[in-house]
Every structure is written in C-alpha cells, then in structure tokens.
Nucleic acid binder design. Structure first.
Lengths: 336, 336
DNA sequence: CTGAAAGCGCTTACAG
DNA sequence: CTGAAAGCGCTTACAG
C-alpha cells in the first residue's frame, strides 16, 4: 500500500505493529535482541505500510552506512566514465551510495569537497590530474587533509603531492614504453601533442617520453585535453614541422583528433606518419587505423581507489601504481 | 583551522561567537533577520573553526535542498555517460547533489529507487529503456508512482508506459530516417542487428525501420546491446545472409562492433556493405569509415529530463520528444 | 526479549 | 533584531 502525502514514519509502523519505537527499529535494521516472530511481524507491517527508512535521520542518529563522494572532471570523457564505472561497481558491492560531481578547476574541486563533507560522506574519490604547481591544489589538499583528520577517507587518482591513499596511473613508464616502441620502429623526428602543461598527468607522460626519445623529440605543444585539442594541435604541427614521422598524443581522446586531421589532409597512417596515444579507451581498438596506445586500466583504477578507502587507515598513505601495457595496433609502423 | 576528531557543530560556532543557536543558523543560511554585522561575525567564526554544515541534520530539520537520484544502466557506455553529463551539469547549476547508481534489470532498478527514496531525494531521473512487456517494469513503476504520490518528482528517459514526465528519444522517427536513407541508396536486402527484443528502445527503432523498409528487411537478429553483441551479430549474419547490401545496427556501439567484424573479414564499407547506427555517440565521427547514424542528443536529453523535474508538477505527465537528425557520413553508399 | 528516554545537529515557528 | 524551545525521524545505551 503506497503512502500519500507525508511519508510513513517508523513511529507509525511501531504503533500499528503494537510495539515500541526501539523494537521497531531493531526489527528493521536486523539488530539482535528481538524475537524472530515479533521482528517478522514488524517487517510485515512496515512493508504493508510502504515504509521507507529516512536515511538522514538514521545517519544523524548514528546508524547507517556513509556514502561515497566521487569527483571527476567530466563524465562524458571516456577516461573518467571508465573510472566512475569502477567506483560505482565497487560501491554497489558494498551497498554504498555514490554522490558524483563534475569539477576540473581547483576552485570547483574545493567547493565540491566541501559539499561532500557537508553530506558527511565516509570517503571521497578524487579523480583528475593534479597540477604541476602544488600551489594550485593547495586549498583542495588542505580541505582533504582536514576531512581525513576528522575521520574521512580519501583516495586520489593521479595526484602525487597529497597525503592520501592514491592510485597512480603508470604515466612515466607508459611514456617510456611508447617512446621505446617508436624508437624501435626507427622514428627520429617525433612530435608530442600534449594537454595543458600545468597538469601532472601531462608532465609525467612527457617525462617518460623524453627520457627515452631524447633528441628525437622535435616538437612539444600544449592544447586542450580533448579531441579538438588533438585535432588543432595536429593541424598546427603540420604547418611547423611537416617532416615528423611520428606523433604521440598525450591521450587517446587527443589521438583521435590527430587521426581526424591527418585523414582530412590525406596523410596516411602509419605509412607517412605514425600515431600513438595513452589510456586505451574502449574505442581505441575501433578507430581506423586502430590506435597503438599505452593501456591504463581505468575501471580497475577506479575500483582500486575506492577499495583503498575501505581498508583500515594506514599510518602513512598507500600508493598503488596502476601498471600499464603497450598495445601495438595499426597506427604505428616503421619510419618512412 | 582544521578540526580534529569530532566535527565542529553549529552549537560550537554559536558559543564561540557569543550568540544563540538560532542566530548562528540564520547567519549561515542567510535567512533574513540578523543584523549584517552580527551575521558577518558569525560567518567569520564559523569559517575560522572550519565549520561544515551537517546536511543530514539540516535536511531532517526541514532546511536544505534535496538531492537528485540518477539511475543508468552502465556509465561506461557512452550513451549513458552523455545523459549523465547532461544531468550532472543541470544539477550543478541548481546546486543539487546527484546520487548515481547502476541498474539494468528490473529488480535492481526497483532496489535502487527504494534506496533513493530512503535518501529522500527530491527527484529521480531514470535512464534506460523500458520493457516491451509492461509487467517487467510494473514493480519499478509502482514504486515510482508511490514516490510521486509522496511528493517526489520523476523523469524517465526512454520509458513510455509510466505516468511520469518523460523525455522520449525519437526512436521510431530515427528508424524511419535511416530506412529512407538506405532505400534512397538503392538497398533492398537489409539486415537489422538489434539489441534485446525485450526492450522498448529496440522495438521502437525496429518499428520505424520496418515501416519504411518493408520487404527489404531480410534478417532481424537480437544480441547484447554492446560492441561485442554487434560484432558477433555481424559474424552470424555473414554466415546466414552473405548477400545483404546494408546492415543497420540498433546503436552506434553495436555498429562499431559490426564494422570491426567487417574489417576483420576484409569486407569493404560501404562499397560492399553499408552500415548505419543510432545515437551518434561522440566517437561515431571518428571510427573509420565514419559512421552514418541517427543523432539523438543524449546530453540534451539528460539535461531536459532533470529540468522537467524542476518545473511545477503538471496535472498530467509531460512528454518531450528528443528529435533526431540523420547524419550521413562515410559508412553508407549506393547498393552494389 | 522489550521499552522509556536521551541524543544526533540542525531549522523554524513563537515570543520578546 | 535576537533567543528559548520544540521538533525533524531515527538509534542506542540504560533499565527492566
């Protein structure tokens, strides 16, 4: 029977069932100390009345599992969608709600963390690159630290400079793998089309790439971390360095933009120019030519991040590295 | 100054600021009736103490904006990621939190709606196809109805048989558009590779397709609504109907699987077989050949759905049709 | 095994 | 403009 108007309260259930509030509460939460028959009776009455616990009241009173807060830059980006999928999956396994929000710039991140704290989430998963300049993230980091001091749990994805559990995408090593692959194919004039220089993710991938590529890097430019950023980056590059034999985009999403520009210009991949990316988003295998990339298991990273917050708090932050895998497909070939 | 151990309560702030609880509350919520100077002073003290409102207490007491509940099948699927992006964006504009969860089968949908009700969300956006057999969705529909009777707001995406505001993807018309396009190109032997026959989304798209294609449909098969479903569907089809000149996949995600199988077999698209999809997910333009598809503006649909819940409740459910746009790209051509 | 009572942290009439 | 008090809907010691 559905209620109308005001929702049914536990007190209503108790009254109808002829028991005290305490007994009604115990019956529904499954707390020990109520005879089986009575508990069953109460549950029957509750469900007949269409009773739905008020989680706010329960949480306030000290019962209730806390929720999970998840902050991503943009859920429409496959990279974050994958991470979110991992987080939501693990949350469901553990019967936790997840409160999700968008935030990319530091000010918004800070505001969202505050909001999540107001909702008294038990844990926050913050996914999104940190900044090369630690000052940019200082306020958010402080807020996170304060949250942890108050008993909250935090796991970050892709942020180093913070005293919290972290899952670190294997960016430097992934950069090295891509670089080595290109070098092996004989490429000596390589362009790097990167996202914003301010981001750690970009900086780390560049470190790995440059470490191995050395002087073979002839151009590094920074653009929006998006398909269009990659597309316009490639267009620009073709003007300034038409002689490159390979382009590394700092994410698959950007790489897809690069491929689009190359196709538009009638430049063959990989016979004229090789292209590689990072992440191995689901569609990377299905663009054409299929993209060579460094696979980072994003869904697993999201899942691992949330799991870290469910472990007993460690005396010092845990760091987990994601690992990566070079996936060679059709977009890379021997230098011409 | 960050708190440690127990969070600062409003009572602590009031005491430190030398005012009553009531005045402290009014100062922080911005309720009229406190002198500007006093209010400012209280806010200063609160922020110095690192005070963070307890939303559970606030909500219970009757203040506080309610949250939004969002249910999607799987956030890793670009179709739902786009919808979610639209919902999250509008929610943020309106300072609402969104609680997200995965649910595809009816039982899980029901459980998630119940959970959302327990959290006293003000509105629920349910994205995901309804079922052809209304009985499958009956329990969830009843729960939603009860939620609305209790004052909750609901908007569904892709469900017809329910008395709630709805944004309906323009599936039938989209099917017609694709069909007409194929007919215009001279195709008379067309195969439809569909998702589960139990879903309304699938049924509706098929209706539009068949209405126009008529006898030109030589095969309809049902598979998982995924890339791999499309891939194996195509493999099967090639065995049973090697003579088709066009394949319509019932979603872009499936179409990408179809393209993969065709590429693997060395079958040229569109010169040997044309391929079309539905949705226009972001990557549809970047696979190769670029996919001809019926564009459904998913992010806009998500945004519109949430906006419907913020309007005054109507006497009868509002239905909004998404509209669609035929996007002709490279994967379709004249029948051979 | 069951109940009466206090308390969780707020907001909002109701008085002044 | 400000405060004392009741109440939101639960859970959990504390008694019995």
């Amino acid at each position: 029977m559905a209620e109308r108007g005001t929702p049914v309260r536990l007190a209503d259930v108790a009254e109808r069932a002829g028991v005290s509030l305490a007994t009604a509460s115990r019956s529904l939460t499954g707390t020990a100390g109520v005879s089986l028959k009575l508990a069953e009776h109460v549950r029957g009455v509750a469900s007949a009345m269409g009773y739905v616990t008020n989680m706010h009241a329960r949480t306030l009173a000290g019962g209730g599992e806390s929720s999970i807060g998840l902050i991503v830059s943009e859920i429409g980006d496959p990279y974050f969608a994958e991470i979110a999928s991992g987080v939501i999956g693990v949350a469901a396994e553990n019967h936790r709600m997840v409160q999700i929000s968008h935030a990319s710039d530091p000010a918004t991140v800070l505001a969202q963390i505050r909001l999540l704290r107001a909702y008294r989430v038990g844990a926050i998963v913050l996914a999104g690159s940190g900044h090369v300049d630690p000052a940019a993230d200082a306020a958010a980091d402080a807020e996170l630290a304060s949250f942890q001091a108050a008993g909250g749990r935090v796991a970050v994805v892709g942020r180093h400079h913070i005293a919290a559990d972290a899952v670190l995408p294997d960016n430097v090593a992934a950069g090295r793998s891509i670089a080595r692959h290109l070098l092996d194919l004989g490429h000596r004039r390589v362009a790097l089309i990167a996202g914003p220089a301010t981001l750690n993710t970009v900086a780390d991938r560049l470190v790995g790439l440059r470490e191995v590529l050395g002087d073979s890097v002839v151009s590094v430019t920074h653009h929006a971390f998006s398909r269009d950023g990659g597309a316009s980056g490639a267009a620009e590059l073709l003007g300034t360095h038409p002689d490159v034999t390979a382009i590394v985009a700092l994410s698959d999403v950007m790489a897809i933009g690069v491929l689009a520009t190359l196709r538009e210009r009638g430049i063959r991949v990989p016979s004229e120019i090789s292209v590689a990316g990072f992440d191995d988003i689901p569609v990377a295998a299905d663009v054409s030519p299929a993209l060579t990339t460094a696979r980072l298991p994003m869904a697993g990273i999201g899942a691992a991040a949330l799991r870290l917050t469910m472990l007993d708090p460690a005396s010092r932050p845990r760091r987990k590295t994601s690992g990566h895998e070079l996936v060679v497909r059709e977009s890379t070939g021997h230098a011409r």
